[in-house]
Design a protein around this nucleic acid. Sequence first.
DNA 1: GCCGTTTTCGGCCCGACTGTTTTCAGTCG
Length: 576
Amino acid sequence: MAVHNADIAAVFQEIADLLALQDANPFRIRAYVNAARTIEGWPEELDLWVRRGHELEDIPGIGADLAGKIREILDTGGCAALQRLRRGFPAGITDLLRVPGLGPKRVRTLYRELHVETPEQLLRAARDGRIRELPGFGATSEKRILEAASAYVGREQRMPLAKAAAYAEALLAWLRGARGVRDAVIAGSYRRMRETVGDIDVLVSARHGGPVAERFVAYDEVDRVLAKGGTRASVVLKSGLQVDLRVVAPESYGAALVYFTGSKAHNIELRRMAQQRGLKINEYGVFRDGERIAGDTEASVYRTLELDWVPPELREDRGEIEAARRHALPELVELDDLRGDLHAHTTATDGRGTLEEMAAAARAAGLEYLAVTEHSKRVSMAHGLDAARLGKQIDAIDRLNDTLRGITLLKGIEVDILEDGALDLPDKVLARLDLVVGAVHSAFHLSRKQQTERILRAMDRPCFSILAHPTGRLLSEREPYDVDMERIVRHARQRGCFLELNAHPERLDLLDTHCRMARDEGVLVAVSSDAHAPADFGVLRYGIGQARRGWLEKGDVLNTRALRDLRKLLAGTMRG
DNA sequence: GCCGTTTTCGGCCCGACTGTTTTCAGTCG
């Protein structure tokens, strides 16, 4: 069985958790946590990375010891050090560390004194009033733990960005009405456009924090207040979303924005650099010998480190700091750069807008062309098109294009890639189209090798333009299927076809690291809405966010091309 | 456990809030 980076990261995270419960050296614990994070975000499977002759020790934060453990995990699937650590604790106790308000010290006390091993047992202990008797705990702590444990037991995962954005942006508008607010933004993973957010960080620039915090906790969607001070407050909204507020003075706003935008790894790197220069960076500014030398804007903070301003989407400590130092940051693609959309459905299959309505909505969204790409017959529950119905739609689009102004419809299909890699419609039918978008909607369980080769075979058909949602994941429902994305990216370059970044908030597929692979390999990415209704073109915003996280520039995105140029590129994929 | 053009030893990011303290530990971001 193949070992994935996520598996290795999970081993290191669990080792870190167990070491923390043992009260081990905190820096040793951090080394495991850092390694887990680095490996989780590594753009290539370490299995392959090693087989291609790379040295694990070249990965930052991986030394001789961790490299040895990675090799062990790759070879055996297990890790003896983890097995040894596990013997000291009941299985699953590390889940308790995920309960907000509990850290290693308190988990250890709860286990030693009350034999609490699971969140469910924690909940019972809190309900029975046993926790308040423990040293270092009290009635208030017990009540908090009770709330946190019940929330954890019935918890929701991280919330998709688009859903969180709706709640957060409404709150932000409310907060801007507070007295003395000069500026207010949502920082954190929202600003970095991560695909999901755990909570929302709101940053406000104001001389006095009090009135802002008052208005914050008075928001009518607040379910409960977790904390409230003069510069900081936390609430949980009725939607379950936690929101943290920080208020800083205008001269500190830029430093605070850097600090609360993160990522944590990016910030740690900035501080390390600052330290080397005898500077100190915190959320209030950049200081030399106690004197503030920067901090009112983000650019001023980066400037003290001789760095260019780094767009938030890049702040993941994946090479952006080095690029900022060399003045070599990418000029990231923007929403306005999109000239068209290459994946949409209509009422002919499972969409909720007619051809005319979808065309009008796309034009209203500022697009110049829209590819209509219905499902093919295999997807029967969406009334997928057969050859005859596709023929009728082709004729309908030709007729409509004669009357449309300001937008051009392209004739396409989202054709199913069958289990053996064949396409769901004959080549000569596909050859009538402007583009063919191929997609996997079945047999998700295939082995990595089978799944990969299935897709490569499909790409090699005479008509194949774009691989839709390449990993098949659905954020709240379905893991990605097992596929070798490097082979797919390389094959796309050799074949001359393209990859889709599906902007649907539940998909956002390609992943950011895959975008970067595509860019490095010179494969163009189509940022597509997969719109099923006229209002759906709004999701392109999230697709662009993900593309930016993947370092894509305007030139790396297929549908920034003018229609003429796009047609030429698509024609090259339609050899049938 | 990692790391190094001040270092192979001795550092490792840092401040706010809370509860239970009576000067601070634990947790969080």
